[in-house]
Simulated scan of single mutants.
Amino acid sequence: MTIPLDKLSDPAVRALLAALNANDRAAFQAALTADATLSDDGSERNLTDWTEREIFSSRGHIEVQTEKDDGRTVIANYRNDTWGEMRTAWRFDVQDGRVSRIETGQA
């Protein structure tokens, strides 16, 4: 069962993932703090480079299956033109209404 993005509990996560699915770089950036960080499968990544490669230039799309921690942890089916579809886990830290940290990896 997929959870519609507009039904996700945390408004900052909701805005970030909606921007991801809309391929909207400006809205995605606006949903992040200026010093936001990211890790992928436990390795620190450059957020700008990673999102360009894994989301925007490869047409990333997320379908959330479950959420917990008030919407700040999700399990989702994620797909892009580079890797196809995979089951992924995402954890978000939120500060002042924007995402300050993304941790993602295969679930």
Rank of each mutant, 00 (worst) to 15 (best):
V74C: 10
G60D: 10
S58P: 07
R59G: 07
Y78R: 01
E54R: 09
D24K: 12
I75Q: 03
N23K: 15
D10N: 15
N21C: 05
A36C: 07
R53S: 07
A27I: 03
L16S: 02
Q95C: 10
N77Y: 10
G60I: 10
R45W: 01
T48E: 14
M86S: 14
F92R: 09
N77P: 01
L20C: 13
D69R: 00
L38N: 02
S39A: 12
T88Y: 09
G97H: 09
R72E: 03
A89F: 08
W50K: 12
T82S: 12
D41F: 05
D93L: 08
I62P: 00
R72T: 08
T51N: 11
D69K: 00
R14Y: 01
S39C: 05
V94H: 02
N21F: 09
E103W: 01
L32T: 12
L16Y: 00
D49K: 08
T33R: 09
D24L: 05
Y78S: 01
D6P: 01
Q65H: 08
S100I: 11
L8I: 12
A107I: 05
V13C: 01
A22M: 08
T66H: 11
P4M: 10
T82R: 14
P4E: 09
T37I: 14
H61R: 08
E44N: 12
A107Y: 04
F56K: 07
E54Q: 14
V64I: 11
Q106N: 08
F56N: 07
L17Q: 04
Q95K: 15
A107W: 02
A107V: 07
